[in-house]
Structure formats: C-alpha cells, structure tokens
Amino acid sequence: MIIEPFQYFSPQSLDEAFEILSEHHGEAKIIAGGQSLIPLMKMGVEVPCIVDIKKIPGLKAIELSKDGLGNVSSIKVGALVTYNDIEGSNPVKKNLPLLAKTASGIGHPLIRNRGTIGGSLSHCDPAADLCATALALNARICITGPGLKTRSISADEFFKGPLETDLQDDEILTAVEFPVSAMKMGYDVQKLTLGHGDFPVFIVSVSLHNDGKKFTDIAIALGGVGETAVRAGECESLLNGRESITDEDILEVSKMITEKYDPPSSAELSHDYTLDMLAVYTRKALINAVQMVTG
C-alpha cells in the first residue's frame, strides 16, 4: 500500500514530459514498468510526483540499422520495450541472442510483461540482469533532455553506483543501442539465485566472437560484485586474441575473477560459498560460450 499522496502525470510527448519534469524539478520521478518504483513507494520511499512516460510515442520500438552490405549493424531497443518483448523479438533473438536469453531469465513472466529495459538500466541495481548484459554487449545509452537535446554514452559510463546513473533529474533514457557483429559469436549468462525467479545474488554475462582464426571481443560482465555491474577487463585481455581457449585457460580466468571481485555474503549464503560460486558460474558461462563457436 502506498501511503503518501502524489501527483500523477501522463504526458503525451517528450516535450510535455520535460515541461512537467522542470516544473517539479527534483520531486518528480519517471515511471516505466513500475516494477521497481512501485515496490519502493510501498516501502515508504516518498515520491511527490510521478511522470508516466508510457503514452509518449516512439519509445517502444525495436529498430535495426544496416551497413552498406545490408547486414544488421546495430539494434536500437526503445526504453519502454519490456523484457517479454525482447524475449519474443525475432531480430533480437537472431542478432543479440544474449540479450534475449538474459531478458527471458528475469524474475517471473508477470514481471517480464511489465519491466522495461529503460527502467532496469535507469534503476541500476548492481545485480540486475540487464545491467550486466548491457555491459557485455557494449550497449550505448541514448538520453534526451530538456529542449530535446540528445546525447549517448556507453553503458559503462552510464552506471555510476548502486541505484545511481549519469541521468540528470530532467533527462529521460529513450533507447539502448547495441552494436551487432557479423562474426561467429558465443555467449552465455549464468547467475546465482536463492530460488527460481529470484533476483540474482550475482550474474555473469559473457559474449565473444571468433573471426575464424582467433577469439576477439571477449566480454565478461559481472553484476552483484560491486557498486555497479562491471567488465572484468584484465580477465578479458587474458583470452582476447587467442586462437584457442582451453578448459585450463578458463579455469585460470575464473580463479582470477575471484581474486579481483567480491560478491557480498547474505543471511543465507556465506561469503566463501558465494565466492566459490562466482568461479563456478564464470567457468560455466565461458565454457558454454566458447563451445558455441568451436563445438
């Protein structure tokens, strides 16, 4: 039950939204899927003004860009696209299977019908599934501000801290753009949860390419191990450019990860166990990803 009263606005355009945001500067919050915001408000977080952006046209599209040869070069996913839309989108499944797989594993189906990619990234929970995968896929975040000024920054720059992003109070995340490569790709996402459909304790999202000779673009993104989702850069460079990746290499990387990153303990799982699992799940994800391009 939400106790404190609040104003509710439902602008029909970005312009109108920015007007409201500036009028209620510092007091207003955007609502997208509401699957984080509403629970927070029920817990007592006071939000005097809610701006529902779901009536604004153009934020729900999944758009493909093609290169000169007609190959898909990037996909722009509108802020209001839900996890379920992502999961079911053919172009996403084909070109960004890691994104589709990640989305299909978030919470449970009722959440997936409501939660949005823009909301998840803006909310910026360090262990959120999509934050890790956005990093792994080198996503760029498209932002619009007052006067319809647009800017775009990498996911990496966008995530600032727990529940903290580079978004200003009067800015709206409008889309997330993912580069697409024509190279052979391998990927996987693995997470530790306390129960089926639970929020991850941590998550490992892996993406890599193989140009026929060597492995490139190795991306290992981790969520839940720090203030925000992060890329395990040193570990990636250990594998980047290799002609082959063996089980031993993967074991070494998984071990290295546990030396560099520290998942939290909880009432139910000790720190030692969680750390052990970080190595196990990293290894599982890497093995599956490598097998996709070699096997």
Binding site: Y8, S10, I31, G34, Q35, I38, P39, I50, D52, T82, N84, P109, L110, I111, N113, R114
Partner: peptide, 11 residues
C-alpha cells in the same frame, strides 16, 4: 499481457 495488478497504479 498477464501482469500483477498489485504492482500497477490504477492510473
């Protein structure tokens, strides 16, 4: 779409 009506504002 099936959704949780408890976690949706009526508005």
């Amino acid at each position: 779409h099936a959704v949780c009506s408890c976690t949706m504002l009526a508005a």
